[in-house]
């Protein structure tokens, strides 16, 4: 075999590394968690909110609901804020200012999630406790912190989508006498919509998968929340809180929780990929 051919083969093997890692992750998570789901029954596992792993009750409904609510709450804060930043940067700010603002806002992505959680506990949780009542550690606190944490995802992908809209679209609209805002709302936003939806979907994945910050501010109580001030335990925090000491069936149940999370996130990823491909 010639040297060139050999190099190509080696590079091909290296290129399979990400795909095979993904495959390994899927296989091992399913191998560990599937037996328990089959034994308990998928229906019981998903639809019961009775989680007492040491007594053989494995129902994760309360955590699914909590995860979904926390994520939706994060979207309510993060999407308008992030989209506003993206619009300002892509459409309304002078190029010089954009050169400074864009990297600055991207710094948000570099701050570790434990730092968000820490500041959430010190500043946000007391504010909620004092002004709104409840224990402070709550669904609301987790949603607000996550809302901030997804901002970089929403901002950077939305900016890419807005920047991809051709300049002549804007010129045409302005030439017809539309104001800049009318142009943005009627021409640019619709043209960038699939990219912006991708940003929102990926942000949802981020939010639902986030663990450390949520553990620190959500309160981790095991029940279906009835108010946004109730403490909640999400799928991710349940895994992280109990993996340290779980064994046997209990550990399998945590991997089963991981399967549910993994499937949700892969579906979101798939949706995002399909959306970008269509363009």
């Amino acid at each position: 075999m010639s040297r060139e051919k050999f190099v190509e083969r080696v590079l091909f093997l290296l290129a399979l590394s990400s795909l095979s890692s993904l495959l390994l992750i899927t296989v091992f998570i399913f191998l560990e968690g599937m037996p328990l789901i089959i034994e308990t029954g998928l229906g019981n596992f998903l639809a019961s909110s009775h989680w007492a792993p040491t007594k053989g009750h494995f129902g994760i409904l309360a955590m699914i609901i909590s995860s979904v609510l926390v994520t939706l709450g994060a979207m309510v804060l993060g999407v308008p804020l992030g989209l506003a930043c993206a619009l300002v940067l892509a459409e309304f700010s002078p190029p010089r200012l954009k050169m400074v603002l864009k990297p600055t806002l991207e710094l948000l992505a570099g701050i570790p999630s434990v730092v968000y959680g820490f500041l959430g506990v010190l500043w946000l949780v007391p504010l909620i406790r004092d002004y709104l009542g409840g224990p402070g550690l709550s669904l609301l606190a987790a949603a607000l912190i996550l809302g901030i944490m997804i901002l970089p995802t929403v901002i950077s992908i939305s900016i890419d989508a807005l920047d991809a809209v051709p300049g002549p679209y804007r010129d045409g609209s302005i030439a017809l006498g539309a104001t800049q805002w009318q142009t943005v709302r009627r021409v640019v936003l619709p043209a960038a919509s699939s990219g912006i939806i991708t940003a929102v979907i990926l942000a949802m994945g981020r939010a639902i998968g986030e663990t450390m910050a949520v553990i620190m501010v959500a309160g981790n109580a095991l029940k279906i929340p009835t108010s946004i001030l109730d403490p909640v335990r999400t799928l991710t925090s349940n895994i992280a809180l109990e993996l340290g000491y779980a064994s046997g069936r209990h550990r399998e149940a945590l991997f089963a929780t991981g399967i549910v999370l993994f499937v949700i996130i892969m579906l979101l990823n798939l949706a995002a990929t399909l959306l970008t491909r269509r363009k």
Binding site: L22, F28, G209, A240, L243, F255, I265, M266, L268, N269
Partner: peptide, 22 residues
């Protein structure tokens, strides 16, 4: 390959933690 890499980027760290642990 790109899809695999993008999906891998989306895998939350707690899942990676579970995987590395097992």
């Amino acid at each position: 390959i790109r899809f695999g890499s993008e999906c891998l980027a989306g895998v939350p760290s707690i899942i990676l933690g579970l995987f590395g642990f097992v």
